[in-house]
Design a protein around this nucleic acid. Structure first.
Lengths: 209, 209
DNA sequence: CCTGCTTTCATACGTTCGTTTGAAACGAGC
DNA sequence: GCTCGTTTCAAACGAACGTATGAAAGCAGG
């Protein structure tokens, strides 16, 4: 931990390359080359390629989780029973703040998250900790109070819908799979569209059995 | 094209393994072993690993696209101005019919699609054709008529939201990342929850500028 | 200047990968 | 039953990969 330089530069390079080429598509050699470090530096500082990915993922997810948690604290301090729209804004907002569209690094973060979520390998999902679970459970409880009558199963389905829309949304932008007529979305517009879209979706009455 | 046996068995094996392990995580050797074929059979029948993926993707997407197209035909024959809910049902329904949750092969298909969408490599998105674009444009036009006042940009954003929710949704189920308390969703329930969720989302009034 | 610890470095190992090749096996048409 | 186009096969090639190793370099404290 003496010289944070090499370690941090490897993290930066890995974050960029994992997002751009995927985990398996990125070689340790490419990472250390971009970081200006020696090939063996990854093994020394992180142990293995998989543990490097975990470190990258933690560094990306932590501020998002913290912002979601702090936002919920502020909201609940203001009103004990927030509306669905307020909860959506508080939950989804940090996903946009930490992954600003239009900003290259924000799109890269979106890509990285989808890369991790989409990869079937087991090592890709061993980095989540109790902090992520705690935030998720707090929001589940808050949404549950704002949406009485919604079953736990359907509520869980809807919360995952929020994640799907916010995470996947920008991937196609990053991949330039948009139709030619469609310019990349302005960052603020996408945020407002997503809130509109998701608040309406979350507020839907329970599905009749 | 004389013996469809080997070719088809390679397609089947590749579809399964690409979904389970990702594109880069699957070796040609693993595919041909599972298919009971020779290593060189992939090169002979498909040319390369990337072209094999394209063939697999086309075989998966084609029936979905055809069903979406036929459904829209039937709907428009019945009423010239379908509601948003009808359009959502017609668009998202085939995604569930062809990828039934609860069914192992359906979850595998969801996984495969997310694997393809999430992979940054260029060869992963060279398989789409004009048929996909045509269906997308038809639905964009139909939704546009049902949602006057919505800008083309925001409409496009929402259509991608449908894809995100339906495709990503089952990935975590497949990956068993659900909280322990949560059993995999029943197939029919997920379909109805998704329609509810997405119809409400699509019907939201345009975002104020 | 020496010592002990951390960090960097060049290099090598063993594996696995996608692709190619040239011959063998097959199968319908005459 | 021979022929020719199609399909299978075993084998090999070169390249790229993750990881390990042991020496060198840097750098505090004495």
């Amino acid at each position: 931990m003496a010289s944070p330089d090499t370690r941090t530069q490897i993290l930066d390079a890995a974050e960029r390359l994992f997002a751009e080429r995927g985990f398996r598509g990125t070689s340790i050699r490419a990472i250390t080359d971009l970081a200006g470090a020696n090939l063996a530096a990854v093994g020394y500082h992180f142990g293995s390629k998989a543990e490097l990915l975990a470190a990258v993922a933690r560094r990306v997810v932590e501020p998002i989780n913290a912002a979601q948690c702090a936002g919920l604290d502020r909201l609940l301090a203001r009103t004990p029973d927030p509306t669905v729209a307020e909860l959506v804004e508080t939950f989804a907002g940090p996903l946009f703040d930490e992954m600003p569209a239009g900003d290259e690094s924000g799109e890269r973060t979106s890509r990285l998250i989808v890369t991790i979520i989409g990869d079937p390998a087991e090592e890709m999902r061993s980095w989540t900790g109790p902090a992520e679970d705690a935030v998720r459970d707090r929001y589940l409880a808050a949404f549950g109070r704002a949406l009485p009558g919604l079953s736990a199963d359907e509520l869980w389905f809807r919360l995952r819908g929020i994640l799907a829309v916010t995470a996947v949304d920008r991937v196609e932008v990053y991949h330039r799979r948009l139709p030619d007529c469609m310019p990349p979305m302005a960052g603020e517009a996408a945020r407002r569209w997503a809130i509109t879209f998701l608040a309406a979706a979350m507020s839907a009455p329970p599905t009749a059995d």
